[in-house]
Every structure is written in structure tokens, then in C-alpha cells.
């Protein structure tokens, strides 16, 4: 089998995943985008492995690792998103975080500029 097809599929997955990550404000959809990217990585690994005929089977092993990690990620992510939903009532990623307001407190006199004479 030509490697072109799986690689093209991987590229397609990457594109879709990037779109998901970049364009979706919904947290879960973003998560799906990430999963697509991971899938592309796995696909590439497996393809390359079969293509190169490596004896150690590193490619498939790594793919399995990625899948496992992805599962773990999803668990944590969903837990966090759930908590977010409980707190805010939405899982929109395009909302300013509450605590991100900068503290510009009073001590700027520490480095006043030299005034012109």
C-alpha cells in the first residue's frame, strides 16, 4: 500500500483538528480537535512503522501510549469542564477569566521618569 493515502488522511486530520482547536469556543469541541490531532499523530506513527518495517514496533507502541494518555486527558479535561460548567453555567472558552484582572497598584512612583528641565 502506498504511504500517501494514510499520510494524506493524517494531514486531513491535522487540519480538522487545528480547526477544532482554533475555531471552536465550546470546550468539548476543542477537546475533540485535540483528539483529532492525536489521532493524526497515531496514524503517522503506525504508517511509518509499517513502512519502515522497524523490528521493535516502536510506532504502534507509541500510538498505544498516545491513546492511553488521550484517555487520561479526557478524564481530567471533562472533570475540569464540568466544574467550570457548575461554576459559570457554560463551557465557553472565549470568556475572560475572572481572576485575570491585573493589579496595578500604587508603587509606580518607584521609577518615575526624569522630567525635562
Amino acid at each position: 500500500m502506498s504511504p500517501a493515502l494514510p499520510m494524506m488522511l493524517a494531514a486531513l486530520l491535522v487540519g480538522a483538528g487545528l480547526y477544532g482547536v482554533l475555531a471552536r469556543r465550546h470546550a468539548v469541541l476543542m477537546l475533540i480537535g485535540v483528539e483529532l490531532l492525536l489521532a493524526a499523530a497515531g496514524l503517522m506513527l503506525v504508517t511509518a512503522d509499517s513502512l519502515l518495517g522497524a523490528e521493535t514496533g516502536s510506532g504502534p507502541v507509541a500510538t498505544i501510549f498516545i491513546i492511553t494518555i488521550a484517555a487520561a486527558e479526557v478524564v481530567v479535561a471533562l472533570a475540569v469542564f464540568t466544574a467550570l460548567y457548575r461554576l459559570r453555567g457554560h463551557v465557553d472558552l472565549d470568556v475572560r477569566a475572572a481572576a485575570a484582572e491585573p493589579d496595578r497598584s500604587d508603587f509606580d512612583e518607584a521609577d518615575g521618569e526624569v522630567p525635562a528641565r
Binding site: E109, A110, D111, G112, E113, V114, P115
Partner: peptide
């Protein structure tokens, strides 16, 4: 004093 501090920083 602000001037001295600015000068020192500079």
C-alpha cells in the same frame, strides 16, 4: 526625591 530615584535608576 523622585528625581534622585529616577536618576539613580537611569
Amino acid at each position: 526625591q523622585a528625581l534622585a530615584r529616577a536618576a539613580s535608576l537611569r
